[in-house]
Design a protein around this nucleic acid. Structure first.
Lengths: 120, 120
DNA sequence: CAGAATCCTCCAAGATACTG
DNA sequence: CAGTATCTTGGAGGATTCTG
């Protein structure tokens, strides 16, 4: 370990992103927070642009981290429902704060980007 | 726009991740917050494992978003210093909250993962 | 309905070498 | 010292097909 920032396995900053910093995780968590209990296809329709494979992968990762609970009803056709766990719910406020910051600052950031491009 | 979650350009959730959800941005922001004004090579050494190219790319993106200020001193050899802007500083508390959550929950998450793997 | 399996594309990220 | 300029690659993500 070179220093306190370079230890990938145990650096909390790095680990945050490896858990929820991928393309779909925060979006799925936010939807489950807003909509509550949802079936696979309901989440699928809510996002619209996600593929079945990526939704499946994302849900599996969130389930393995204990952020989402998967309930299988043994009926035909299958009925599988997803909802946030207690741990998942505890993450929601932080996501909302981040989203709130992004909403507040997005226009200014877009302006900064335009200025930056004109100077390049 | 299919619904409120699927509009990639204007969805704040998606935009948060596109800005700071890449591999190095949050780490660089955190280091600049803790260490204050730093030269290019000082950041490079602080992280250790990042390549010059990725550090350059990351700093440029943060600068273009107005999160980091770049000061060039016209001397030889070159001296370039980086520090957080006001906007960059306003993001720090949210990052810290997220990191705090990750630190608190990381052991439990690792346990969940092990259990999940044993059942698969 | 809820996915698994397969194949494919593309780009973030890395390695290396060079420079004002 | 503080970067570019190229080249390369692993793997996230996507498209399509199949199934209990």
């Amino acid at each position: 370990m070179l220093n306190k920032y370079s230890d990938i396995e145990n650096c909390p900053i790095r680990n945050v992103l490896n858990h929820i910093g991928n393309k779909w995780s925060m979006l799925v968590l936010s939807i489950l927070d807003e909509e509550g209990l949802l079936r696979f296809n309901e989440i699928h329709k809510a996002i619209g642009s996600i593929s079945q494979k990526m939704l499946s992968t994302t849900l599996k990762r969130l389930e393995s981290d204990g952020l989402v609970k998967r309930k299988v009803h043994p009926v035909i056709p299958p009925r599988v429902e997803y909802e946030l766990t207690k741990r998942g719910k505890s993450l929601i406020p932080h996501i909302k704060n981040l989203v709130g910051w992004a909403v507040e600052n997005f226009n200014d950031i877009k302006d900064s980007r335009l200025k930056f491009e004109r100077l390049s």
